[in-house]
Simulated assay, not measured.
Amino acid sequence: MAADASGEAAPDLGKCAICGRPATPEYRPFCTRRCADVDLGRWLRGSYAIPVKPSEDDEENGAIPDEDER
């Protein structure tokens, strides 16, 4: 760990989740407001969605519309 201005050891905040630079306490786990906003934009656009394959149970229960219903 690096020392801060008071001479005390600064906690290791890791790397920015967007650009890889050192994270800052104010925007943790990001380094700047810009990187935090980039992440927020990705969430709002749905970029972080997890793809899911429909199971047979979903198809039998009608949870998945047929091709002609889409």
Rank of each mutant, 00 (worst) to 15 (best):
C19T: 02
E56P: 06
R42D: 11
C16H: 09
E26P: 12
E67A: 15
A63R: 07
S6K: 04
C19G: 01
G7C: 04
K15V: 03
K15P: 05
A23C: 12
P51I: 07
C16W: 15
V52Y: 09
I64Y: 08
E67N: 06
E60I: 15
A10Q: 09
D37A: 13
P54I: 13
C31V: 13
I64M: 11
A5P: 09
C35Q: 02
L13D: 00
L44S: 03
I50E: 09
P11Y: 00
A3F: 06
C16R: 09
C31Q: 11
D66H: 12
S55W: 02
D37K: 12
A63I: 15
V52S: 07
G46V: 08
P54E: 03
P51T: 05
E59W: 14
A49L: 12
C35F: 08
R28H: 14
A10V: 02
A3S: 05
P25M: 11
M1T: 00
A9K: 08
E69P: 11
P51H: 07
T24F: 13
L13W: 00
A23H: 07
L40W: 07
W43G: 03
A2L: 01
W43S: 04
I18E: 14
P54Q: 04
G7W: 09
G20C: 09
M1H: 01
R21L: 14
R70V: 09
L40C: 04
D39L: 06
S55H: 04
R45E: 05
D68N: 12
S55L: 10
D57W: 10
P25W: 02
I50M: 05
E67H: 12
E60V: 15
E59C: 07
A63C: 13
S47E: 15
A36Y: 03
G62C: 12
W43P: 01
D66F: 15
P65K: 10
E67Q: 12
L40S: 06
A63K: 11
C31G: 05
E67M: 15
R70C: 15
L13T: 00
V38E: 10
A3V: 00
D68F: 12
E59P: 00
E67I: 08
K53Y: 01
R70A: 06
D66C: 11
D39P: 02
P29A: 08
M1Q: 01
Y27C: 15
S55Q: 03
V38K: 11
A2F: 00
S55C: 08
V52R: 14
G62V: 08
Y27A: 13
R33F: 11
C31F: 14
D58C: 09
L13M: 07
T24A: 11
E56A: 12
E56W: 04
G20E: 13
K53L: 10
E56D: 10
A3N: 06
V52C: 09
R45A: 09
V38P: 13
Y27G: 00
G41E: 11
D66A: 15
C31I: 14
A63N: 14
Y27L: 14
E59R: 15
C19Y: 06
T32W: 10
A49R: 11
D68H: 14
R33M: 13
